[in-house]
Structure formats: C-alpha cells, structure tokens
C-alpha cells in the first residue's frame, strides 16, 4: 500500500517536473530570452595584490593611514562609517593624542544635546565617538543625492563579491559608455544623474566619479605619489580594515590553531593505531 502510494506520488512529481521542463524548453526555443546589457558589459573586479591577501597577509599600516586620509577628504563628504569609532584608529598606528586630534578635526561634528536648553546640536567628536555621519538621517541623505542615499561603508568590502578588489575596480572603473552599448542597449545608457561603470552591478551608478585627478589628496613625506590608482588602492585597503579589523588576530590565531591541530591529529592517529594494534594482529 505504501509502495503503491509512493509510486503514484513519485510519478506525479517526477512526471509533472518533466512536463514543466518540456514546456520550459519549448518556450525557451520559441522565444529565447533577450540578452541583457549587464550580461554583456558587466566586468568582474580586477585582481589587486593587497598586503592582506593570502593566509598570512597583514595590513600595511602606512597604507591604512593614507586610506583614512582619502576617506576623510573624499568619501566622508557623503558616506558614513557607522560601526567604526575614532578610538579604533589605534589599530592604524595612531597614539591617543593623534586620535584626539583626528576626532577634533573631523569634517563633521557629532550629534549632541545642548546641556542648558536640551535642544539638539552638534559638538566636536571625541575618541569614543563613532565616526559622525555626513547626514543626520536617511531622508536627508536621499534629498541631497538625487534620491540615492550613499550607503554606509563600514562593511562595504564584506558586503560585495570581490571585496577590496571590487572597491578598487569601481573607483578606477569610470569610463565613457562604449559605442556598442548605445547601439545595442540604448536603455542601459547612463541618465542625467547616473554614471557608467562596468564594475557596477547594473552598469550605471548614482555616485559620480569620486577620485578624479592625481594629487587630489596630498600625501605626507615618503608616501607614494597620490595617483588615482594609488588612492583607490589605499582607500580599498582602509575599507577592508573597517570591515574586518580583527583580520590579523584571526590569521595569527588560525596559524597557531592549525599547527596545533596537525600535531594533535598525528597523535590521535598514533593513539588509534596503538589501541587497535592487538585487534589487527589477532585478526
């Protein structure tokens, strides 16, 4: 009885799936899906040789500091860094006094309350503050940016396939739309408020090119030349740190753990052979 029932249920599900497949295939042949602009023009992020790549890679402190500078002078005008505090910059190699200065000189102020009147106001940020956002709320962010709110960048490199490579490719990927795009997909041409970038998911993004010219940010003594390429790499590295500040501890702990476990595994195999030795012998 169970087997007859099962046979009928199986016949129904399998049969109907095959019918659906046949209908799907028929439709596919009759009206093949039109190719999309994304499918033809979207590019995979470029590979960058970052210092933190690989199982033992670490951050380059100087690069993170330059990346912070690019973020502060360029990105922070529109993007927040919600989950990062000034005190976290100790990990970039700054001391307490330097962090205090960075906080004091940050382009935006922290929200606060006037102690006398209770009215909302702002004050100079302190080390324990989160990085203050450029806009008080999402509505303000939308209103100031043609209805496209700039996303928070704290976790950006973990929130996109390709991570730091993606951020770098996007920043250096702005270009004029290819003539072929206009010919084949006129609808996918950038509009008045969007900009063509083949590394962006739907090819046109609201953010105008942020890094325009070499030397847009002035790096300190001994730093590499602030070319657009260099600035993009530095800020991509910085945003990797904001997304994964514990990367170095993680890899260090991991190396120790794996070595320990390899030895442990060897010992376990030894103990196992040992305990079974007489069983095998007597077999």
């Amino acid at each position: 009885m169970i087997r007859i029932g099962a046979f009928l249920v199986g016949l129904f599900f399998s049969g109907w799936l095959l019918v659906s497949a046949a209908m799907g295939a028929f439709n596919f042949v009759k009206s093949p899906p039109a190719p999309t602009a994304e499918h033809e023009f979207h590019k995979k992020p470029k590979d960058v040789d970052f210092s933190f790549n690989g199982p033992l890679g670490t951050y380059d402190r100087a690069q993170l500091q330059r990346g912070l500078q690019v973020f502060r002078e360029v990105c922070s005008a529109c993007h927040s860094l919600h989950y990062v505090s000034f005190r976290d910059f100790a990990a970039l190699g700054y001391n307490e006094a330097q962090i205090k200065t960075i906080a004091q000189e940050w382009p935006t102020e922290a929200p606060s309350i006037n102690p006398e009147t209770g009215e909302a106001t702002t004050r100079k940020p302190i080390a324990t503050d989160k990085i203050p956002a450029p806009y008080p709320n999402e509505v303000a962010a939308r209103a100031a940016n043609n209805n496209a709110a700039p996303p928070d960048l704290s976790l950006m490199t973990k929130a996109r396939h390709g991570g730091a490579n993606y951020v770098y490719s996007l920043l250096t990927g702005y270009q004029n739309p290819p003539a072929e795009l206009k010919k084949k997909f006129p609808d996918s041409m950038p509009g008045k408020t969007t900009h063509y970038n083949p590394y962006f998911a739907n090819l046109n993004l609201a953010m105008p090119r942020p890094l325009n010219t070499d030397g847009q940010v002035t790096y300190g003594e001994g730093a590499p030349k602030p070319t657009v390429d260099q600035m993009a790499k530095d800020v991509a590295a910085f945003l990797t740190w904001t997304a994964e500040p514990k990367l170095e501890q993680r890899k260090r702990a991991g190396t120790a753990a794996v070595i320990f476990l390899l030895v442990f595994f060897g010992l376990c195999v030894g103990a196992y052979k040992n305990i079974w030795a007489d069983k095998k012998a007597h077999a």
């Binding site: 199982p55 973990k158 929130a159 996109r160 396939h161 993680r250 890899k251 702990a253 991991g254 190396t255 753990a257 794996v258 476990l261 390899l262 442990f264 595994f265 376990c268 195999v269 103990a271 196992y272 040992n274 305990i275 079974w276």
Partner: peptide, 30 residues
Amino acid sequence: TAKDGVGVAAFFLVFATLLFFAPNFLGEPD
C-alpha cells in the same frame, strides 16, 4: 573512542581552517 579521536581532530582541523582563514566563504555578502 580512539577512532573517534582521529575523526574529531580532523573535524577541528577543517573547522579551524574555515573559521580562521575563510570565515565568510560559505556566507552571502548581502
């Protein structure tokens, strides 16, 4: 218990590799 010890060690070896060196490999960026 001895044979399971080998299994447990191998389990933690794979687990540690995943956890420490590719913690987001199986996750979705979204």
